[in-house]
C-alpha cells in the first residue's frame, strides 16, 4: 500500500514542479516526472507479490502471473510520452531562439 502512496507523492512532486518553476526546461522535466509516476502506478496495479513473467507455454501451468495488460499499456504511454516530450523540447528550443531566455516570466506576450 505504501508503494501506491509513494507514486502519489511522485505525482505531486511533478505537479509542484510544473506549477511553481519558472524555467521552461524544469517545467518539461516536471511533465516527465508526472508521466512516469502514472506509469509506475500502472505497473504496480498489474504487479503481484512473487509473480512471474506472463509467458504461457504448453508444459507450464498458469500460476501467479503478473498482469501483462498494464505492461502493454505502459509501453504505449511511454511512446506517447516520448512524442509529447519531443514536441515540448522542440518548442522550448524555438522559444529560446526567439527570446534568448528560458524564464517564463520574461516571455509573456499573450494575456491568456
Amino acid at each position: 500500500m505504501s508503494l501506491y502512496f509513494l507514486c502519489l507523492i511522485l505525482f505531486c512532486i511533478g505537479l509542484y514542479c510544473v506549477l511553481r518553476k519558472r524555467n521552461i526546461i524544469k517545467i518539461i522535466v516536471g511533465v516527465g516526472i508526472i508521466e512516469y509516476a502514472v506509469n509506475l502506478l500502472l505497473i504496480l496495479i498489474g504487479y503481484r507479490q512473487n509473480g512471474r513473467a506472463p509467458i504461457s507455454a504448453n508444459d507450464q501451468e498458469i500460476l501467479n502471473m503478473v498482469d501483462p495488460l498494464p505492461q502493454a499499456m505502459v509501453l504505449t504511454t511511454i511512446v506517447i510520452g516520448l512524442a509529447v516530450m519531443v514536441i515540448l523540447v522542440a518548442l522550448a528550443l524555438r522559444i529560446y531562439e526567439k527570446h534568448g531566455t528560458f524564464d517564463i516570466t520574461k516571455i509573456r506576450r499573450l494575456k491568456g
Binding site: V38, I87, I95, R109
Partner: peptide, 19 residues
C-alpha cells in the same frame, strides 16, 4: 513568438490533462 508561446502553454496543460 506568440504561436510558440501559445503552443507551449497548450502542450503543458494538455499533457497534464492527459495524465
Amino acid at each position: 513568438p506568440e504561436d510558440l508561446e501559445a503552443s507551449f502553454k497548450y502542450a503543458i496543460m494538455g499533457a497534464i490533462a492527459s495524465v
